[in-house]
Structures are given as C-alpha cells and as structure tokens.
Design a protein around this nucleic acid. Structure first.
Lengths: 201, 201
DNA sequence: ACCTGAACACCGTTCAAGT
DNA sequence: ACCTGAACACCGTTCAAGT
C-alpha cells in the first residue's frame, strides 16, 4: 500500500514489491498465492478502513458519515476505488462492511429488499462518483477553472453549445467537489427517507 | 472490440490484436500511437453508441432511456464500463455525449450548475451500478438464489446477522437486476424533478 | 507507405537448488 | 521453512531493414 501510495498502483508488480522489500520476486510466493492475492489483500484493508457508525446515530447521518469516510480513504489512497471495482468481492472485510451497512438500514425500518437496493444505490454512487472524478481529472479544484477555459478554447466554435454554456460557468467559478458529491448523495438519501415515511415500520 | 467481446478485455494485447488481424504486432504502430490509443478508440466507439433522446422527449424520460441504452451497451460489451472508467476522458465522443445530456437538462430548465451536478450524479450511478454488478457477479439472475444460499452456508454461524437476513430473502426469491437498477435511478430522477418544481424556470 | 524480425526492458509464475 | 537463480511464456514498444 505504501508503494502504491508513493508510486501508483501500476508500480505494484511482484518484482517491484520484492525490490521494495529487499527480496527476490520469487520469494513472495512463499507468503502469498500470487499477485491477485496481494491486490485482494489491499482491497480488504482499504474496505475495512471505511467506517460505518452504528450505535445511536440516525441512519441518514450514519450513511452520510460512511460516505465521508469512504471519500477520506480514497483521498489517502487514490488507487483504492479503481482497485475495489476491478476485483471481485471476496474478502471478509467486504462481508463485514455489507453487514454493518445493512444493519443500519434494517434498524431504520427498511424491509430487507429495500435495504439491499438502498445499499446498492448508495455504493454505486459513492464508488462511481470517485471513478468519474478521477478520470475527469477533477482532483485539484484550483485547476478546474483553467481546465474549463482550456476546454472552451479546444471546442470547435459553434459545436457543443450546452457543454460550452456549462464550461463557462466553471471558468468563472471553480468546481466544488464536496458540493457536487453532496448533491447526488442528498438526492439518494432524501428519496430513501421519503420512502421510509411513506411506508413506516 | 470483437476480440474483447469474444475473449475478454485482457486478451486485447498488441500481439493478440495483431495475430487476429493476420499481421505482426509492430505493424500496428503504423496505424495507432500505442495500446492506449486503441483502448481510447474503443471507449469512443462505445460512448458514441449510448443514445440520448433529445427532440420532443420529456427530460426524465430522456434520461431514463439514456440509462437503458447505456445498460444495453454494457450488456453487449461486458468490458465497456470497466474500460470507460479506467481511462481519462478525452475523445470527441465523450464531449458530444456530455453536450447532449447537458442539452436535455438545460432545456428542461435546470440552471447550468445544477445540470452539471445532475449529469455527474446520474453518470456516477449508472457506471457505478454496472461496476458493482460486475464484481458482485450478479450477471445471471438465475444463479442468484444459489449464490445467496452459498453465501449463507459460507458465513460463520452467528456472524453478520444483517447480511444473513438479506441473503435469506434472495435465497427465497431471485435478485432482479432491472428492478434494483430502476430503484436507484428513480431516487435520483424523482429528486431532480422535485428540485425543478421547487424552483421552476 | 507499410510490413517484418529482432531486440530491449519489462511482466507473473514455477521450480530445482540451496541454507 | 524460507530464499534464490534461472528459466518460461508472456507483455509494449522501437527501429533498422526490407518491399
């Protein structure tokens, strides 16, 4: 994980990892089944680091904090979101995470199937948003006005009028990642709350 | 793309692609800058295939159809979602796609910044859902009751009670991918509509 | 203008040989 | 029990040499 943080996930090779550990690549196979095993281990650690408040916190607040916690993890480990959704779920950390999230939703009164759907919707959004952010290069907000201006300059005149209109907005005032993330999250959470109120218990 | 459809994205190597074309790997470099160029091209084609209704369709219906179209593309090309969010946006297909989606939202009356937030939220969800689905192996609904039963059998007794409760539900009646996707999508779309009604024009 | 063969600097993984 | 060197079957990419 240190190696990935410092040099990027693409530098996590069996040979590179071995070098960093002062050992030969072949030696790693005495401790690990293969590269997939290493990556799954990283996913496990990272998922375990997402915390889900459970006792005495209202479900909506708990889900919001879980999202914030996940985003903190992604900020510390830029490779995490991509790795999580490039590997099939397996580790026990994933099971525990799912259990805690579902626990909050069931306790709030959502029927099991609705809780599962809500879990899927929230996680799709949280992970999807991070991936989107990463490959739109929206990482540093300071640079977004410049990026918007560059986009405007690059677009052929007359083409993509709607895109241009939106880009002008961001050329004037920078993109706010926090606010954009909160926008979608609130749509989901408010919708879930309405559902709960419509059919309580 | 045929190669990826038939043998998986991991079989799309410069050497493998060349073999399929009856040519040497080195020859490809006369037509393409490198492997990244090939992958970006695939993303471009795939994004261009997502259609966004524009004329005479209500915005909500247009966004729903766009989601359905995207899911159709992902069904035809299982590697597409993963590839899209592993590469930085660049191609003109992406710009055009963004322009069309933003066009629908602006025409519906959303202010530019809200339209951008809505676009981000919807796309995060659509892509995120697909990635989630792919690595939870929820591809074939027929197998989901078995999968749920296996999960139940594998979980240590007494552990993960909430997860067990939900899994029992799916062991009894299979997971419905369509319905689950629609659940989250409706939360977002209904929330957006409420926003629009609260501050019209 | 395009193709090829050969090479370079990498991968992940295996396995006999060492200690 | 763990490590190593060497090998195998791959990668992406470059480049001189061909046509």
């Amino acid at each position: 994980m240190d190696l990935a943080d410092e040099s990027g996930i693409e530098s996590v090779t069996m040979r590179g990892l071995a070098r960093r550990l002062g050992v030969e690549a072949a030696s790693l196979y005495n401790h690990v089944a293969g590269k997939g095993d290493v990556l799954d281990g990283m996913v496990d650690v990272v998922v375990a680091a997402i915390d889900v408040p459970s006792g005495g916190v209202e479900w909506k607040e708990a889900m919001r904090r879980r999202a914030v916690s996940a985003r903190g993890v992604f900020a510390r480990h830029p490779w995490a979101a991509g790795l999580i959704d490039s590997r099939e779920r397996s580790g026990s950390a994933g099971l525990s995470y799912a259990d805690r999230v579902l626990g909050v939703l069931l306790a709030a009164g959502f029927p099991p199937r609705v809780a599962a759907n809500a879990f899927m919707a929230l996680d799709s959004y949280i992970l999807g948003f991070e991936r989107q952010r990463a490959n739109l290069s929206l990482s540093d907000e300071a640079g977004t006005t410049d990026a918007a201006r560059e986009t405007l300059a690059a677009v052929p005149p007359g083409a993509f009028p709607s895109l241009v209109r939106v880009a002008e907005e961001y050329a004037a005032e920078p993109y706010d990642d926090e606010a954009t993330f909160a926008f979608g999250l609130s749509l989901l959470l408010d919708g879930l709350q309405r559902l709960l109120e419509a059919a309580p218990g």
